[in-house]
Amino acid sequence: MRTDVQRFTVAHLLRRPAACEVGGFVVGFDPSTTSPYVNYATPFPGAEPTDRDIAGLIAAFRERGLRPRLEFAPDAALAVEPALRRAGFGTEALHEYLVCTPATLVAQGAGPGSADPVDVAAPATDADYTAIDTALAEAFGGQWAPSPEGAARLRRTEEGGGAVRFVRAEDGGCAGGALCSALAEGTAELAGVGTLPAYRGRGIAAAVTAALAGTLFGRGAASVWLEYSGEGSRRVYERVGFRPGGTRLYVSLDG
Rank of each mutant, 00 (worst) to 15 (best):
H95K: 13
G172L: 05
E158Q: 15
P146N: 10
P36F: 08
R153D: 13
G142L: 08
V120T: 09
G142A: 11
T215R: 15
E48R: 15
V120G: 11
A211F: 02
G218K: 11
E138W: 00
A83I: 06
A178D: 05
G241M: 08
P148L: 05
G176C: 10
E92H: 04
V26L: 08
V118H: 10
F242M: 02
V38S: 07
A55N: 04
G141A: 08
G141F: 06
F72S: 03
G186W: 05
A77K: 11
T134K: 11
D126I: 00
A139M: 08
G218S: 10
A152P: 00
D4Y: 08
L94S: 12
A145C: 02
G28M: 05
E189M: 11
A122R: 14
V38F: 02
A135P: 13
A151V: 01
I58K: 13
T50N: 07
G241S: 10
T157S: 12
T34H: 14
T91S: 09
S229W: 01
G28I: 04
V120F: 03
V164S: 12
G142V: 06
P102F: 11
D51P: 00
E96M: 07
A178S: 15
R165W: 09
A124E: 15
C20T: 15
L226S: 09
T33E: 03
A83L: 08
A135K: 08
T104D: 03
P197C: 11
G186T: 04
Y37E: 09
G220V: 03
V10Q: 06
T209W: 07
R219A: 15
I54N: 06
A184F: 08
A79G: 07
I204Y: 10
A110G: 14
G255S: 11
A60I: 02
D133Q: 10
R243T: 13
V22A: 07
T187D: 04
L190V: 01
L105D: 02
P102S: 13
V167L: 08
A122I: 07
E138K: 13
P17T: 04
A207P: 01
T195V: 15
A93Y: 04
G56T: 03
P17M: 06
D30I: 01
A191N: 11
G113V: 07
D51S: 15
G24Y: 12
L216C: 06
S35A: 15
I58M: 09
V5K: 09
R219N: 06
V208S: 09
V38H: 03
